[in-house]
Each structure stands twice: as C-alpha cells, then as structure tokens.
C-alpha cells in the first residue's frame, strides 16, 4: 500500500517532467525553425543587396557617362551652342560696356570634342559644324532620351 501511495504521489511529478521536456523540445524546435527562416531571409537580403549594388553601379556609370564633359559638349553642339571666348560685361554703376560683343564665329572647332574618352559611347556622332546661335531658329526642346539611347560605359 505504501509503495502504491508513493507511486501515485510521484505521478504528477513525472507528468511535470515529461511535459517540461516536451515543452522545451517544442520550443527548441520552434526556435530552430525561426533561426533557419532567418538564415534564408538573411541570404535573400544579401542577394537583394548585391542586386541593388549592381543596379546602383549600372546607373552611376550611366550618369557619369552622361555628365562627362565630352558628352555635354557633344550635346551642346547638337543643340547649336558654341563657345564664345569674348565675354562682354555691362557695368551697372556707370552703364558702360566692357569688351566688344562678337558673335561666336570661328570657334566651331572648339565645339567639337577633342579630348578622348573611351568610357563614353555616344550613339550619334556630334555635328561636325555647329550652327552659330544667331542663325538658329527657336526650336522645340528635344525629348528626354530613351533609356536605350543612354551612352553606356564600355569595359576595357
């Protein structure tokens, strides 16, 4: 009887131990699943970062190519703009004119790019002879170039 009573008394204790063990196991399982999930998420995020870095590089190269002085000069030449190395100033205090205004003729050669840049590919060659500003008619602003027309940086 005494043994039977002792066994009965231990019953809840065993149940608690078994339940505790099961709870810990389930918790461990859940944590393992969560960790595994995080590892995959981390991996995905790293891949996404690589992709974004690549996109950033592609865009940065395009921007650098478009904003290079050679590209700007070619674009300006296409629009008929020419450099004028004869600036003229109007002095406001005595309304005098400093310098002789001259049209930017004879500077067409400087409107062509002469500085090499193999990191820039211009899809269309610049006009060989720029039109003086005085001879150009007001014209509609050009449409924004399509993405495909962006000069891309080549490799070397």
């Amino acid at each position: 009887m005494r043994n039977l009573n002792q066994t009965r008394a231990r019953g809840p204790l065993v149940m608690i131990v078994v339940m505790g063990f099961l709870a810990i196991s389930i918790l461990h399982l859940l944590l393992t699943i969560a960790t595994s999930q995080s590892v995959y998420e981390l991996s995905d995020l790293k891949r996404e970062k690589r992709e974004l870095d690549t996109t950033s590089q592609i865009i940065a190269e395009e921007v650098a190519s478009l904003s290079s002085q050679q590209n700007l000069l070619n674009t300006a030449a296409k629009l008929g703009m020419v450099a004028n190395s004869n600036p003229v100033f109007l002095k406001l205090d005595d309304q005098s004119v400093l310098g002789k205004p001259k049209p930017a003729l004879g500077t067409a050669s400087q409107s062509r790019n002469l500085v090499a840049n193999s990191a820039m590919i211009d899809t269309k060659p610049a006009k060989q002879e720029a039109v003086p500003a005085s001879q150009t008619q007001p014209q509609q602003l050009p449409q924004v170039a399509s993405v495909n027309a962006i000069p891309a940086s080549p490799t070397r």
């Binding site: 290079s68 002085q69 050679q70 500085v115 840049n117 990191a119 820039m120 940086s153 490799t155």
Partner: peptide
C-alpha cells in the same frame, strides 16, 4: 574590380 575614369582624358 576595375578602374573607371568617367571623364576619359580630362
């Protein structure tokens, strides 16, 4: 890694 000089000969 490669080196890029966006302004070329400038």
């Amino acid at each position: 890694q490669d080196r890029l000089y966006p302004n070329g000969a400038v």
